[in-house]
Design a protein around this nucleic acid. Structure first.
Lengths: 121, 121
DNA sequence: CAAAACCATGGAGTTAAGTCAACGGTTTTG
DNA sequence: CAAAACCGTTGACTTAACTCCATGGTTTTG
């Protein structure tokens, strides 16, 4: 599919998609039609984009994500320690989730306190 | 305590602390000693800073946090709908945590896959 | 009491992640 | 087939959250 359709279906802007592609997060075949230079995205790009959203929600930077996607599926070329890298990311994300859940609890408590206050304190 | 001590104990830079104060996230009494203009932070600033870290891990912006802290404890002055605001934040954070956990799962799977690969595929 | 260590303010600079604008080709459509 | 709708590239701009720097007071310390 072309960039416009992917943008509509993913909810991202065309600019964002081109940006992600430049960063190596998604890929497109250069238009099979030869005559133009339009990008052609496979259906699975939508899945990848959803996973990118998950990663961003977990606080991952695009640079780290590109590192992950590039290095991990490249079957561990040479001196890249995938296990150590993954372990570090996992620890970071776990810490983040723990903090986020603690915050969520306090938000819920604040909400309950508000609800329990009829009109004035 | 003065800014240097708070910085050491919180792990944040003095600049960050002054920045947070300017944004209304933390408060200090202007030095009781009168002669200088040094900030004087109460012990609880450390707790507040930890909560701020939780909120940031949950994806809250400083602007939203300032809004929360300012409006909510100001006993709902006038036209500010605290319940709606809280409900919106809660929904956002829940969605974020869900996504983050999904990402964490895939990280763990990737890790397990790596561990299961002795030397070559 | 002088040097070192701290603090303040104001403003410029940085980084990440997009976003926008300008200009010029390609496709689609009425 | 001409206008509308798409697409491409390059490069400048934006926003959030800091970070750095310069300049000049205040405290602490040996």
């Amino acid at each position: 599919m072309r960039i416009g359709e992917l943008a509509r279906r993913s909810g991202l802007s065309r600019d964002t998609l081109r940006f992600y592609e430049k960063q190596g997060l998604i890929e497109s075949r250069p238009g099979a039609e030869a005559t133009n230079s339009y990008r052609d995205y496979p259906e699975e790009a939508l899945i990848t984009l959803d996973q990118i959203a998950d990663a961003q929600a977990a606080g991952m930077s695009i640079a780290d994500l590109a590192m992950l996607m590039g290095q991990l599926q490249a079957a561990d070329p040479d001196g890249f320690d995938g296990e150590a890298f993954l372990d570090a990311r996992i620890a970071e994300v776990e810490a983040r989730v723990t903090r986020a859940e603690r915050f969520l609890d306090s938000l819920r408590q604040a909400r309950a306190a508000l609800a329990a206050t009829p009109v004035l304190r």
